[in-house]
């Protein structure tokens, strides 16, 4: 099976991730949309790995997973700190730097 179908699926998932990132207001869901985009990129890399017949794409996807795990740990810790001080999970309320 040609990798094009996988790449199209990856493009669709990435666009849905961008859409969620832009239209949702809950910071947790925005964060999940970022994870969705990372997953879409991973799928593209694994598909390319399959098409090219070597494992470099899979190694790349593995590194993306590691970095995503680190990113989630830090991001969620920051979200919790913001929630402790502001009692809100909405990005619209994090506008205090404006004033």
């Amino acid at each position: 099976m040609s990798p094009n179908a996988y790449l199209v699926l990856s493009a669709i998932l990435f666009s849905i991730g961008v859409l969620g990132f832009l239209i949702r207001r809950n910071v947790l869901i925005i964060f999940m949309s970022v994870e969705l985009m990372l997953n879409a990129a991973n799928l593209a890399m694994v598909a390319f790995s399959y098409a090219n017949g070597n494992l470099l794409g899979q190694v790349g996807a593995f590194f993306v997973m590691v970095v995503a795990a680190a990113e989630v740990v830090i991001g969620l810790a920051i979200i919790m700190i913001i929630f402790k001080t502001r009692r809100s999970a909405s990005v619209d309320d994090q506008n205090q730097l404006k004033h």
Binding site: S2, N4, L7, F48, Y50, N52
Partner: peptide, 13 residues
């Protein structure tokens, strides 16, 4: 973009 840049890999690992 994906449709134009057709990847014709031999396929298979």
């Amino acid at each position: 973009a994906v449709g134009n840049g057709v990847v014709t890999g031999r396929g298979g690992l």
